[in-house]
């Protein structure tokens, strides 16, 4: 038995298996990601490699199993990796994932799984409201792009619309001076912003050619309007400001309801802040970009997660122990021996 373990758990085999997993992974990155899952990472060959690595690791751990302080790191790292593999298998075998699309005020107790089946939940979810939060305008953020076209309509330059940025376009130095989200001329004849909402986003640029410098406003909603300003030099290209609003967060305000419709929990689901309830986790995935009328959430039940996370903790602890604590303990023991 020990002879078999020695062969199956040999360091040379570990080395070869790690190298093979790395080589196959390299191949997987060279093909399109969606196809790579089918062709490489979920293929029988790759699963076989991972299984062989698991067997090799188990044999190696059993062979060198010692209940000593100095073996702690070795045990932790090897068991850690095994737990990650086992957790992934549990997740694959018993886990379930799918999508739940809800319109505002809609209640649902089921979702469509990845295998296109309907999965019923032991509770219901109601979407109370979906909203999108945008960044407030900051002087230091970019507001989209400044584009330059020639007379034939070909794009000749594209620069981020960022205050202070200077670019050279066909002998003209273009510098971005200012931005207002809602351009308006106030009673004193000065440029101001009517609100902080991007109703009429405008960018002020200065144009320097030789000794002559002029300035003009470019309007994202009214391309070409800058030409209506009097007394300005005609440029050998057309400038266009393309405003881009920056999304800060997508928010689904949802309630978890029981079978009688009573509210058990109310929470806002955001990217980076999913909702966990009844063994399921709901993630914010997509939304109705046109009217914000619906939200798409991913529902996941993965019983392998605690096992994988235990593996992560053990692996991290083990590696720090082997590479940091163990050499320190060895140096300390050596010094004591010398004394």
């Amino acid at each position: 038995m020990r002879r078999i373990l020695k062969i199956v758990g040999s360091p040379a085999l570990t080395f070869a298996l790690i190298l093979s997993i790395a080589a196959v992974s390299v191949f997987g990155t060279l093909i399109e990601q969606k196809r790579s899952l089918e062709v490489v990472y979920h293929s029988p060959l790759f699963i076989l490699l991972l299984a062989a690595f698991g067997v090799n690791l188990t044999s190696c751990t059993l062979l060198r199993l010692r209940l000593q302080l100095r073996s702690l790191g070795f045990l932790a790292t090897h068991i850690g990796v095994l737990l990650i593999l086992v957790g992934a298998v549990i997740g694959g075998a018993y886990g379930i994932r799918g999508m739940m699309q809800l319109a505002t005020d809609e209640v649902s107790n089921h979702f469509i799984t990845d295998r296109q089946t309907l999965k019923e939940l032991p509770f219901s979810i109601r979407l109370n409201r979906f909203s999108v939060e945008y960044y407030k305008f900051s002087k230091y953020h970019n507001f989209g792009d400044l584009l330059a076209f020639d007379d034939d309509g070909y794009l000749i330059a594209e620069v981020p619309a960022e205050i202070g940025r200077e670019s050279l376009i066909i002998g003209h130095s273009i510098k971005i001076l200012d931005f207002v989200p809602d351009f308006v001329i106030d009673q004193t004849g000065e440029v101001a912003t009517r609100s902080q909402l991007p109703e009429n986003p405008a960018l002020r640029v200065s144009i320097r050619a030789g000794d002559k410098t002029t300035a003009r406003w470019l309007f994202s909603n009214f391309p070409g309007m800058e030409h209506h300003f009097a007394g300005e030099e005609v440029l050998p290209f057309h400038l266009l400001f393309k405003f881009q609003e920056r999304i800060k967060s997508y928010k689904s305000d949802v309630s978890v309801l029981n079978s009688t419709g009573s509210e058990l929990l109310r929470q806002t689901i955001e990217v980076n802040a999913p909702l966990s309830y009844g063994g399921y986790v709901f993630y914010q995935m997509d939304y109705d970009e046109a009217h914000y009328n619906w939200s798409l959430m991913q529902a996941v039940r993965d019983p392998g997660v605690p096992v994988v996370y235990a593996g992560f903790c053990l692996l991290t602890f083990g590696i720090f122990f082997i590479l940091y604590a163990k050499p320190y303990l060895q140096r300390k023991a050596k010094k004591q021996e010398e004394v």
């Binding site: 790690i18 790395a22 994932r97 999913p274």
Partner: peptide, 29 residues
Amino acid sequence: KTVWGEYWSWDPKETWSLITWLVYLNFLH
């Protein structure tokens, strides 16, 4: 896992960081 519901999705960046980790793992072995 917190953002996309999956701790591993074989995204090229993820995969290459694993490949790099595996190369150094072999170094240590």
